[in-house]
Amino acid sequence: MDKVIATAAEAVADIPPGASLAVGGFGLAGVPNVLIQALYKRGVGGLSVVSNNCGAMESGLAVLLAAGRIARVTGSYIGANKEFARQYLAGELELELIPQGTLAERLRAGGAGIPAFYTPAGVGTQVAEGGLPWRYDGEGGVALASPPKEVREFEGGRYVLERGIRTDFALVRAARGDRHGNLVFSKSSRNFNPLAAMAGKVAIAEVEELVEPGDIDPDAVHLPGVFVRRVVALTPEQAADKRIEKRTVSS
């Protein structure tokens, strides 16, 4: 039952080249930076990443992206990540861009054992009809486009079929975790982390505070330990290392 791994390097040691990863985080909040850095140091590439975005401000997944380690991204936001946009438009990586709510539900569905579901999001657009550029050819043309998806009518409304997502591994960050893998997330850092962990066949969590089993009230658990295979306790310095993407101050 003790799922604690001594170091982040040991926790990611068996992630092979070409693996698929569900990664928690939104912007700079709740990003498993320590696990990502450990994976970067391993030097594995050809990774398929499922995450809301692909890192920001040269942190998080942006570290793997800049090193050319990511081959495919399933996400909902490119944003201000200029390197992400450059690689996509240059045809250096494949991108499946989907609505943010659909991404969340596809991860949750995969973790819950639901192979597919219907949603109104994207009906009447290229999300459902196909033709979204997944990969460019580097010269402005589309080398690979999204296929059309099944659309059905239910009670007078039209819905598109979306498939649940399962990945080989998941990397997440939690505020607290016990040795059994039960996790608690802090405020907005909860974001995609529980969903990513559910979707991964092997979920690895870095926790800012490691506690003993029973120290977390069962009613306070955000993600049960049944979804988590490995836990890495961060040092106080690692736990305190939290950057601010856009600082807003009053005059």
Rank of each mutant, 00 (worst) to 15 (best):
T125L: 10
P99A: 11
F227H: 15
S189H: 00
F192L: 13
T248M: 10
P120L: 03
R179P: 03
V34E: 15
V63M: 13
D14I: 00
K82R: 09
M1Q: 13
V231P: 07
S20I: 06
I165L: 10
G79F: 09
K187M: 07
G18N: 03
E237V: 04
K3S: 10
A240Y: 05
A145V: 01
E162C: 08
R86N: 10
R152D: 10
P133V: 02
A66H: 14
V211N: 06
K187N: 09
P147A: 12
F169C: 02
T74D: 12
G55A: 08
A29T: 00
D241E: 14
V211I: 11
G79Y: 03
K149D: 12
A143F: 01
A174M: 04
A71G: 07
T102K: 05
A197D: 13
P213S: 02
K3D: 12
P236E: 10
V184P: 04
R152E: 12
R158G: 10
A67K: 08
I5T: 11
G43F: 01
E96C: 06
A143Q: 10
G55Y: 02
A80N: 11
V228H: 00
K246H: 14
D219A: 09
L65R: 05
I70R: 00
C54R: 02
E150M: 05
K246V: 08
F227R: 04
G138C: 07
K187V: 00
R243F: 06
G122L: 01
H180A: 15
A22P: 10
F84G: 04
E150Q: 11
A11T: 07
G45R: 13
Q238H: 14
K242V: 02
I70Y: 01
G200A: 04
A80P: 11
E245L: 14
G141Q: 09
P213V: 04
V211Q: 05
Q37I: 12
D217A: 10
V50C: 11
S48A: 14
T102R: 07
R106S: 13
A85F: 12
T119Q: 07
K201F: 07
A56P: 00
G225N: 04
R190V: 13
G55N: 07
A80R: 14
L161K: 15
T125P: 11
A109Q: 09
G214W: 02
A29R: 00
L21W: 14
